[in-house]
């Protein structure tokens, strides 16, 4: 059981990365981006491209990286993929969502357009890689370390938790300490007043997409490291992402973090009682329950 909880925290921290991006974007432009899960896939596959195609092409020798199940290439691929997906998210907004926003399109049109964008991303992955599973480094043994209480954790998973912790702490400091971060929170609070104060809200929207996309990419790569890569991985994350976002009160970054952990833990722990195949249903059930009994989420008291 303790082991399942630890695995749940690992899965939950990955869900959190996606949910935080989703909630930040929603907070600023009140738009539920159904393509967010597929941005996670995009991040994972771009990292795969860098580690398995781009860097080997330079002829540098392939070596392992510490006790982890990936090579040194990942150290480069991880941040580069985050940057690229940040750019992809900005691009999606500029060529698609912004146009619709300026036309005052309604929520259904916006949702459908993001659904369309999600299909496009997934199909591009299918065309390039096919529908097989991939690992960043196939054929590597992934030994686990034994901890007290019979908990077996792979070094990969410890690293995942560490990276998520770093990213979230970094984002927290950015939002609290920097001028741009504060302006992002101000814009999420009240976009009209932000404009009136002279804040360039278009620039804030671009920053928000970039951060949301980069975090999604990080989540996708970490899931790829922990489990495997599959074209539908991000799409399958969509329900957990929305469940975490709604659970943590939509628009609230810290809520999304907690929501993600709750969803991750519930999903993993559920496998002790029900067939693992039903795991995705757990997030769905939680989402329905929240919508029925506490539609504004757990943190609806204040805006933060």
């Amino acid at each position: 059981m303790a082991e399942l909880i630890v695995y749940g925290i690992v899965l939950g921290s990955i869900i959190s990365l996606g949910a935080i991006g989703l909630t930040l974007v929603y907070g600023i432009i009140r738009f539920a981006n159904f393509a967010h899960g597929d941005l996670m896939s995009a991040g994972a596959y771009i990292a795969l491209f860098i580690t398995s195609v781009a860097l080997p092409w330079t002829g540098l020798p392939h070596t392992t990286f510490g006790p982890f199940s990936f090579g040194w290439e990942m150290v480069i691929a991880f941040p580069v993929s985050m940057l690229i997906v940040g750019g992809v998210a900005i691009g999606l907004d500029q060529i698609l969502y912004q146009k619709l926003r300026n036309k005052n399109s309604n929520a259904v049109i916006m949702a459908m357009s993001s659904l369309g964008a999600s299909f496009i991303i997934r199909m591009i992955i299918l065309i390039l890689w096919g529908s097989d599973f991939f690992f960043y480094r196939p054929g590597v043994l992934r030994p686990a370390i034994e901890f007290p209480l019979g908990i077996k954790i792979r070094p990969d998973q410890i690293l995942i938790l560490f990276i998520v912790f770093l990213l979230i702490t970094g984002l927290h400091l950015f939002l609290k300490m920097t001028k741009m971060g504060k302006a992002m929170r101000a814009t999420a609070d009240n976009m009209e007043l932000a404009k009136v104060s002279g804040i360039d809200t278009e620039k804030i929207i671009i920053w928000t997409w970039c951060i949301g996309g980069a975090l999604a990419a990080a989540g996708g790569i970490l899931y790829g490291i922990d489990v495997q890569l599959h074209p539908a991985m991000g799409w399958n994350f969509l329900i957990p992402l929305f469940a975490a976002t709604i659970l943590g009160t939509i628009g609230n970054m810290y809520g999304a973090l907690i929501g993600g952990l709750i969803i991750g833990i519930s999903q993993q722990v559920s496998t002790a009682f029900i067939m693992p195949t039903y795991k995705p249903a757990v997030a769905f059930v939680i989402m329905i329950l929240i919508l029925l009994f506490r539609p504004k989420g757990l943190f609806s008291g204040g805006k933060e």
Partner: peptide, 8 residues
């Protein structure tokens, strides 16, 4: 109305 940023 709405002339402050409430969460700031």
């Amino acid at each position: 109305v709405d002339n402050v940023f409430p969460s700031l």
